[in-house]
């Protein structure tokens, strides 16, 4: 029986200190420093080539940093070291030995972890019972990703790293990812979720870490991240002519834009949503008002774009 490795008391789940990594002339990570608290779902966002997968590879022992220090639960990360018992990975690229069945792959994967769940239980939990005896060479992309998710989560490690877990999954597969991530969080586990799917991030993440060109742009909890947009969108419907709507909004210092799909529906982006709502209620009768915060996607685009502009200016 292999001994279980325990986290160092009070240590963060992940700690990057001045981590740099280059591939030839291309810097994948530049002096990256951040830490993630144990528990919860931490989203790792960034455009393509921002260093997300490199950071994940270094965290999980798949690559070595050129400089800096990486720790997980207080233990220094090294290949097959103590952190390998604490952190499991669902990689972006999945490629199982094609002649092994799903059950055999799962059995082999879970054999490395003393605290792993029983294979049959994991097969049931991930809806893999029907394909347990099928060789992995015959799996669809979605089935292979479900198996990869089962391997990572069934290990019952303190932290699960998911690199694009919903890519090529159908709606049921995405639901399963969401359910499983929620279960890991509920049992006190930590999830690091790298994803381009902003709906998934919106739904699951508790905190957000943004990378761009290998640098850490910032780290926020989800509410703070949304608030970084600095505005809310007031949506209303009216039968007034467009000229009248524009005059009304201009009088209140607002800029209204018509909805592209629904005639008579308008949107106003403002940092004074209460005042805008009052103005529209008084001026349009029954405007069917809704006030929404911008989504993570919009905020993310703004942050990356503003950083891009700052970079160009500098």
């Amino acid at each position: 029986m292999r001994a279980e490795v325990r986290p160092v008391a009070g240590a963060p789940a992940v700690e990057f200190r001045g981590v740099s990594k280059a591939f030839g002339d291309t810097a994948a990570l530049r002096d990256a420093s951040f830490s993630l608290a144990p528990g919860g779902v931490h989203a790792l966002l960034g455009p393509n080539g921002s260093g997300k997968t490199t950071a994940i590879d270094i965290l999980t022992g798949g690559r070595r940093a050129d400089a800096g220090e990486v720790r997980a639960f207080g233990h220094r990360v090294r290949r097959s070291g103590p952190t390998a018992f604490l952190v499991s990975l669902m990689p972006q690229a999945v490629d199982f030995p094609e002649y092994l069945t799903c059950r055999e792959v799962l059995t082999l994967c879970l054999a490395h972890y003393p605290q792993a769940a029983p294979v049959d239980e994991v097969l049931r939990r991930f809806d893999l019972v029907g394909i347990a005896a099928r060789q992995t060479g015959g799996l669809s992309g979605g089935q292979a990703r479900s198996l990869a998710l089962a391997c990572a989560v069934g290990a019952n490690t303190r932290m699960v790293v998911l690199d694009e877990p919903s890519a090529s999954l159908d709606v049921f597969g995405r639901e399963r990812v969401a359910r499983v991530v929620g279960e890991v969080r509920d049992r006190g586990g930590t999830v690091l979720l790298a994803s381009h799917d902003m709906q998934e991030v919106e739904r699951l993440a508790d905190s957000i870490l943004c990378l761009r060109r290998g640098e850490v742009l910032g780290q926020w909890d989800v509410d703070d991240f949304r608030a970084k947009a600095g505005y809310r969108t007031v949506t209303f419907a009216t039968s007034l002519p467009a000229v009248r709507v524009r005059e009304l909004c201009r009088a209140g210092g607002l800029d209204a834009r018509p909805d592209e799909r629904i005639p008579g529906r308008w949107h106003v982006d403002t940092d004074r949503s209460d005042a805008a709502a009052r103005l529209l209620l008084d001026g349009t009768g029954h405007p069917c008002l809704t006030i929404t915060q911008p989504g993570i996607s919009e905020v993310f685009e703004r942050i990356v774009a503003s950083d891009e502009r700052a970079g160009v200016t500098a």
Binding site: R2, T60, G61, G62, R79, S80, G81, A84, F85, V87, S88, L89, P91, A93, V94, D95, F96, P97, C109, H112, Y113
Partner: peptide
């Protein structure tokens, strides 16, 4: 050259 081998680098098993 397989992605599976790369994955095995991340699990607690020695060479």
């Amino acid at each position: 050259q397989s992605a599976w081998e790369r994955w095995l680098f991340t699990v607690p098993v020695s060479a």
